[in-house]
Design a protein around this nucleic acid. Structure first.
Lengths: 210, 210
DNA sequence: GCGGCCATCAACCGAATGGCTGATGGCGGG
DNA sequence: CCCGCCATCAGCCATTCGGTTGATGGCCGC
């Protein structure tokens, strides 16, 4: 069987270097190219048609998530294997929804990584154990209560210390409406006041992503 | 001049591999060993006496910060170069206070990394530009305002949605005292209400570390 | 030993908050 | 076609917050 061709996408030279070294010194793999951001990744993937794209999610200039979405949209053949540093619950699900074939942590030992790439090339979904367990538990819980758009917006302003009245002004709605939204937020997050709501917001990744 | 001897500390095999590859293929460096956590790092540094320790800060099992503190305490000769993925304001200052000789981002190009190691070996402080500018601005601001123990404690309870009265009960103090603490917290964090204080708490890493 | 910071407490007051009940209109799924 | 969810608004009311002023005692550093 021909080598599995790879495209490495990561903003850190060190990481790209490490990956390239690992795959070049192992039989059965060919590194076609490296990309440092999502835009480059999409271009190179379209041009070089690799079997597998190893992609970091967090990168400056065109996030990995957007890149995956774009690759899927263009119907590109390459399988995308997300290779990330940490597995934040907020990242895993969207990435897989966007079309990623697998999700690995960089902590993974080499063997696991090699194996994952082979699996991905064959079209099989590969998840690192940590991610897998996270996924099932995420599926198990019906819906951790995603806030409605307006509710999130209000919560963000609350986190900035904005009073109800000023939130009303800022969003061009009445103070009564702000209070209604907030009540819903409290209910959905299972808290009793705005301070706790902000805390929950951070814990659940609703807030905090600059 | 003899080679500069290195100890690589990072919990990710990929990163260690990348670093090892880079330094072994460049003249003037010798990689003595690798460690995957802070405890190992201290042991190996004590045993092998490297010139420079390249250390990631965030690692499971004995954080990098503790490792640096311990190395400094033991008066070990090695210079510690912190090599981290992102530069969160909460990490840089403590690391340098703990005795790190330098602070680099993994984004740094190879040349800069090599140069930084040489500088560190010579005992000079090296900071990546991003970190350096962050430092000066941190110094410029009078005091990032670390909360007093009691104040932090109160803030934590506030984040859990506890009312002033209940905080008072929980800490065996009067409600008046709770309010006083909170007022101080607001002033120190530069916010106006408890919700914003919680937000700041998360942003500044005071809250959120489970 | 004086000033600064921490921790504690008190009383007062105006404003903001949160709970409740109730109402309207739009939109989408079954 | 009705139900549920979103988004909007209103009024009432008890509670809670946050600001202010003022005070005490302990501890640390100069």
């Amino acid at each position: 069987m021909a080598d599995i061709s790879l495209l490495l996408v990561d903003d850190h030279p060190v990481v790209r270097n490490g990956l390239r070294g690992m795959f070049e010194s192992a039989p059965g793999f060919t590194v076609l190219a490296e990309a440092a951001n999502g835009v480059e990744a999409v271009e190179l993937a379209a041009e070089l048609d690799p079997d597998v794209v190893l992609m970091d999610l967090r990168m400056p200039g065109g996030s990995g998530l957007d890149a995956i979405t774009e690759l899927t949209r263009r119907g590109i053949r390459a399988k995308v294997l997300v290779l990330t540093t940490w597995d934040t619950d907020t990242d895993t699900l969207p990435a897989i929804e966007a079309g990623a074939t697998g999700y690995l942590l960089k902590d993974a030992p080499q063997d696991e990584l090699f194996n994952a790439v082979r699996q991905a090339a064959a079209g099989r979904t590969v998840l690192s154990p940590a991610v897998a367990s996270r996924l099932v538990s995420a599926v198990r819980s019906p819906a951790p209560s995603p806030l409605a758009a307006r509710e999130r917006q209000v919560l963000e302003l609350v986190a900035k210390g904005t009073s109800n009245r000023d939130i009303a002004r800022e969003l061009f709605i009445s103070e009564a409406t702000v209070k209604t939204h907030l009540s819903h937020v409290f209910t959905k997050l299972g808290v009793a006041d705005r301070a706790a709501a902000v805390a929950k917001g951070y814990e659940q990744g609703i807030l905090g992503r600059d």
